[in-house]
Amino acid sequence: MAEPTPVQLDELVKTAVAIRERAYAPFSHFYVGAAILDDQGRVFAGVNVENSSYGLTICAERTAAGAAITAGAKEFVAVAVATPGAAAPCGACRQFLYELGPQCAVLLVDSDSGKVVRTAPLDEFLPNGFRLGR
């Protein structure tokens, strides 16, 4: 896997923070933006989308991953997640991202300051993640 450049990581963080305002979170008011960098250098953004049937809510990380996969991405290199307080992805998102990026860099971004609070490989967030046939 190619290492992301500082310029790519900066773009990823800015994208995650900026896209956050498009989140649909009328129930929790917890707005999340995510941006994924693939191995081709492309960036894909996503936001959380809540639903009155709470189980149908989708997280920003999975929205961004869906956009990436739809565009033909085969490997995730990095993901930035922007939330107030720099929250980590939920367990479902960790597993979802693991499929195409077990070693991808995860950048936790405080959306209020725009600063990266923590960076670590995804497999530190999800040790012993599950993948079939890869």
Rank of each mutant, 00 (worst) to 15 (best):
E61N: 09
A18G: 12
G41M: 15
C59W: 05
I19H: 02
A34Y: 05
T57G: 05
A45I: 00
E75I: 04
Y24L: 15
G72L: 11
G55H: 06
F44V: 00
V79A: 05
E11I: 06
G55Q: 09
V7W: 04
T63S: 15
R20I: 12
R42N: 13
S52D: 13
L12D: 13
F30A: 11
E50C: 08
A65C: 13
E61R: 01
A78K: 09
P4D: 14
G41D: 08
S28T: 14
P26C: 10
Q8Y: 01
V32L: 05
E61H: 04
F27G: 00
A64Q: 03
G85K: 03
T83V: 07
V32S: 01
S28C: 06
F76H: 07
A18V: 14
H29E: 11
A78Y: 07
A82R: 01
D38E: 14
A82F: 01
A60E: 08
V43P: 00
Q40A: 06
A86S: 13
E61K: 12
A25Y: 13
H29F: 08
C59F: 08
D38S: 02
A78C: 09
L9C: 13
H29S: 04
Y31N: 14
V77G: 06
R20P: 02
L9P: 11
P4Q: 08
G66L: 13
E50Y: 11
Q40R: 10
A35K: 09
G85I: 00
L56F: 09
A68D: 06
D38H: 10
G85T: 09
S28Y: 00
V7K: 15
A86E: 11
R62A: 08
C59I: 07
R42V: 00
G33W: 07
T70N: 03
G55E: 12
A25R: 02
V13Y: 07
V47E: 03
A35E: 14
S28I: 06
G55I: 08
A82T: 00
I69Q: 12
G85R: 13
T83C: 13
T15P: 02
E61V: 11
D10V: 03
A68S: 10
A65E: 15
S28R: 08
V17I: 11
K74M: 06
V77W: 06
R22L: 04
E61W: 11
A16Y: 09
E50N: 05
Y31F: 07
S53T: 11
G33S: 03
K74R: 12
T57R: 12
C59Y: 12
A78N: 12
P26I: 11
V43A: 08
A82K: 02
I69W: 11
P26F: 09
S28A: 07
V49H: 13
G55L: 13
V17M: 01
I36L: 14
K74A: 08
E61L: 05
G66Y: 09
V79W: 02
A64R: 02
A73M: 01
P6C: 04
V43M: 02
G33Q: 04
T70Y: 08
C59R: 01
T15L: 10
N51G: 03
G55R: 14
A71F: 01
I19V: 15
Y24D: 09
F76Q: 09
T63D: 14
Q40D: 11
F76T: 15
F27P: 07
V47S: 07
V79P: 00
P26G: 01
K14M: 04
S52E: 10
R42S: 10
C59V: 03
I19Q: 03
E61Q: 15
V77H: 02
V43T: 04
D38C: 00
